[in-house]
Amino acid sequence: METNTGTNRPRINWLKYASPKTFYPLAGKLIPWCAVSAAVLIAYGLYIGLLVAPTDFQQGEGYRIIFVHVPAAWFSMFLYLLMAMYAGLGLVLNARLSYMMATAIAPTGAMFTLIALVTGSLWGKPMWGAWWVWDARLTSELILLFLYIGYFSLQAAIDDKNRADKASAVLALVGAINVPIIYFSVKWWNTLHQGASVSLTQAPAMAAIMLKGMLIMAVGFWLYSIAVILMRVRCEILERDSKTAMIRQD
């Protein structure tokens, strides 16, 4: 008879999924689901953004750039925070999978930063009258791109994987301070860039159908990010760990 149930209760070993060996096949199962739903949502978002949404009262048809620019800018910041979180987790727990996740997130985050900068430039030229201005929003977003580049070049520069992980993790954490600066730059300083149309604290300053298209696109970008990051982390696991064992499991 059991009287002391507290100690003998069957426990799920959550840490099991923190090991690259068990995470590898799990990631493999998730990828197709994320990829397919990403494709569907992005197609639906494009349909709304390019075919259904009405003209804007100020910017005419030119405002449609918002459907790619804003989701890309959101994920440039969000993926940085996620990368910094995994890097920090790696430092605290000394968990290898966390470092691998951080490494896998960086290129996708950098790509979205570049997309946000380029589409922003293509939007700024006709509307503002300039491809680029050195205001606080644009400058801090450019710094974000440099932080991403710094992160993976530091990793590439150090031969010892373990030390490379640790050094780049510190850089990722230090750079995380730039994300709130980007986000609040339009409130803190005089900028040419306008304020946020969508925020957690205020009613959105957008017509419902435009907002719907943008949010669907954002969810699509999120699922795309998950799929491509999981693909990359699987490569990372294979490159760092004994390769044959993994592939046989799959």
């Binding site: 048809e61 997309i115 030229k125």
Partner: peptide
């Protein structure tokens, strides 16, 4: 500008 953005 629009097609350029979506294209990129």
């Amino acid at each position: 500008y629009v097609w350029g953005s979506f294209g990129v």
